[in-house]
Design a protein around this nucleic acid. Structure first.
Lengths: 79, 79
DNA sequence: CTATATTTGTGCGTATGTATG
DNA sequence: ACATACATACGCACAAATATA
């Protein structure tokens, strides 16, 4: 899954794993993403790394984050 | 403003720019300094460079840093 | 209304690795 | 060998907003 020795940064590896779950339809629009704390535990990374991974998905427009509520899979535009 | 080609290290250039803002009264005693992240963005340097710049100001007694709170312009001694 | 737990947001502290001059 | 500078990644502490008992 995650390779700490890979030249690919951990936060990118985590981001890609989460993105894959979304594209696979395992996480559907409106569904909550795992919390930072859960990502931390599931992938055994620091919270900062989990946060950065989610930030990548946000920049890609895949998810939307609400303060103190969570991060959710973005609704895809109707087109 | 900042010259990456200058023989003067970046962290010193940044420190001097911040010190100038303090001496100019633009940043007053008690006011928060820009965060490391903000310095990073404003001067387009790495976080380590921003940190080191702030460290210089701390050594000069211009600012005080509180863990997990921030860095603040030092209150000038009454003399 | 109060208290607690959860989750995101922010800021500093530290260590490691890489590259350059 | 050394100093500078970048990036990544770990951690701690606290604030702010939300949800729930």
């Amino acid at each position: 899954m995650i390779d700490p020795l890979s030249p690919t940064p951990l936060y990118l590896q985590v981001a890609d794993l989460l993105a894959a779950r979304i594209e696979r339809g395992e996480l559907r629009p409106g569904n909550p993403l795992p919390s930072e704390s859960q990502i931390q535990g599931q992938y055994d990374v620091a919270r900062g790394t989990a946060r950065r991974a989610v930030a990548v998905l946000r920049e890609r427009g895949l998810v939307v984050t609400l303060h103190a509520r969570g991060t959710f899979v973005a609704e895809r535009p109707t087109t």
